[in-house]
Amino acid sequence: MATTGADGLMQASSSHGNLPLVRRLEAVGFRAWPAASVVYDGSWQVRLTGSHPSKRLNCVVPLDPSDYRDADIRIEKARKRFEHYGRPLLIRETPLAPRQLLENLSQSGWSRFETAEVMTVDLTCLELPDTLDHIPTHDIGRFIDVYLTVQQEDPALKPALAEILSAIKPTCGFFTAEHLDEGPMAAALCVQDNDLAGILSFAVIERMRRRGFGTELLTAALRWARINGARTAWLQVNATNAPALSLYSKFGFRTAYEYHYWAIEKDIP
């Protein structure tokens, strides 16, 4: 549900928290889910991917709380760039977004329409459940087939996902759970970037949820990351996804910060 600009601004006025941690998690997040086109306007990162509609791959992300100069001009410049890609302009608000920019958006008819939580857990002392282990596959195509089936997404997205996954520079673990008769059950991508490991594209097919498949696959991914030297795991999850939040909490994940999307009302997905 979208919030009004005023409501969003009120929520955004809370403490920014640990900005160095936010900057580091944002940086590894960008590397873990790379956009096809990335340009900078000052400290604003402009991310666009013509082949895939993911909001994280198609948004403007301000990365310096003090960088608000010529905001109206820069927003219009970004809007035209997004228009060339056939995309509505979205702005992703993290604790690094300038307060003045949020005030401008609020006063200009923009609304906040989605909130996600960035969560972390210390892997060095994490006690993982005793479950069946899964070995990561190196077959990107197979992983994508499982993920699209589990998520019930359009198979036509396979080439775009293959391009995105192939562009990831850090070490990747592609985890899948399949049953001989039932078919694909779950999928998870773990991207290890030095001592940080990100869990992405984690999903369990709807009819098999709450039967342990998610726990098994998440456990396998976290064990793999820890064995390979990761000390902290992170992930991003929609704030309304109660089942996922419950699962992550059981593993010890805690919210480091939230981010939000803003758009003009007519462009809200």
Score class of each variant (00 low, 15 high):
residue 248 Y to F: 10
residue 127 E to Y: 01
residue 269 P to H: 07
residue 250 K to Q: 15
residue 133 D to W: 09
residue 88 P to N: 15
residue 136 P to M: 11
residue 107 Q to S: 14
residue 191 V to D: 11
residue 74 R to K: 05
residue 263 A to L: 07
residue 116 A to L: 06
residue 55 K to H: 07
residue 219 T to Y: 09
residue 96 L to R: 03
residue 209 R to Q: 15
residue 40 Y to V: 00
residue 58 N to I: 00
residue 124 T to P: 02
residue 216 E to H: 12
residue 62 P to G: 04
residue 235 L to E: 00
residue 186 A to E: 14
residue 267 D to P: 04
residue 148 L to Y: 09
residue 131 T to A: 11
residue 134 H to T: 08
residue 254 R to H: 09
residue 249 S to I: 01
residue 54 S to H: 10
residue 67 D to Q: 06
residue 129 P to W: 12
residue 53 P to G: 08
residue 143 F to H: 12
residue 154 D to L: 03
residue 109 G to I: 02
residue 81 R to H: 09
residue 203 A to I: 04
residue 19 L to Y: 11
residue 126 L to M: 08
residue 109 G to E: 04
residue 53 P to F: 13
residue 147 Y to A: 12
residue 86 G to C: 13
residue 189 L to H: 07
residue 246 S to T: 06
residue 253 F to Y: 11
residue 187 A to R: 05
residue 59 C to A: 13
residue 150 V to L: 09
residue 100 Q to N: 05
residue 129 P to S: 14
residue 50 G to N: 12
residue 248 Y to E: 03
residue 2 A to I: 04
residue 9 L to Q: 08
residue 220 A to N: 11
residue 149 T to F: 03
residue 250 K to S: 08
residue 205 I to V: 14
residue 197 A to N: 11
residue 257 Y to L: 13
residue 69 R to A: 14
residue 170 P to K: 04
residue 115 T to A: 03
residue 173 G to C: 04
residue 240 T to A: 07
residue 198 G to E: 14
residue 178 E to T: 12
residue 107 Q to E: 15
residue 155 P to K: 01
residue 42 G to T: 03
residue 214 G to T: 10
residue 146 V to I: 15
residue 102 L to W: 09
residue 235 L to T: 00
residue 13 S to I: 04
residue 94 T to L: 05
residue 18 N to V: 08
residue 40 Y to K: 05
residue 179 H to C: 10
residue 235 L to H: 01
residue 9 L to S: 04
residue 71 A to G: 02
residue 223 R to T: 10
residue 236 Q to W: 02
residue 69 R to G: 06
residue 147 Y to C: 01
residue 74 R to M: 07
residue 18 N to A: 14
residue 163 E to S: 05
residue 174 F to H: 14
residue 117 E to W: 07
residue 74 R to F: 02
residue 68 Y to L: 03
residue 62 P to V: 10
residue 60 V to L: 01
residue 120 T to C: 05
residue 194 N to T: 10
residue 67 D to E: 05
residue 140 I to E: 08
residue 30 F to K: 00
residue 102 L to I: 15
residue 31 R to H: 05
residue 68 Y to I: 13
residue 18 N to F: 11
residue 124 T to K: 13
residue 118 V to A: 06
residue 18 N to Y: 07
residue 82 F to M: 03
residue 35 A to V: 01
residue 220 A to P: 04
residue 72 D to I: 05
residue 175 F to E: 14
residue 123 L to E: 09
residue 77 K to R: 11
residue 233 A to I: 12
residue 24 R to V: 02
residue 212 G to P: 05
residue 238 N to F: 08
residue 210 R to D: 14
residue 241 N to L: 02
residue 212 G to T: 09
residue 94 T to M: 12
residue 155 P to Q: 02
residue 104 N to K: 13
residue 235 L to S: 01
residue 28 V to H: 03
residue 186 A to S: 12
residue 76 E to Y: 06
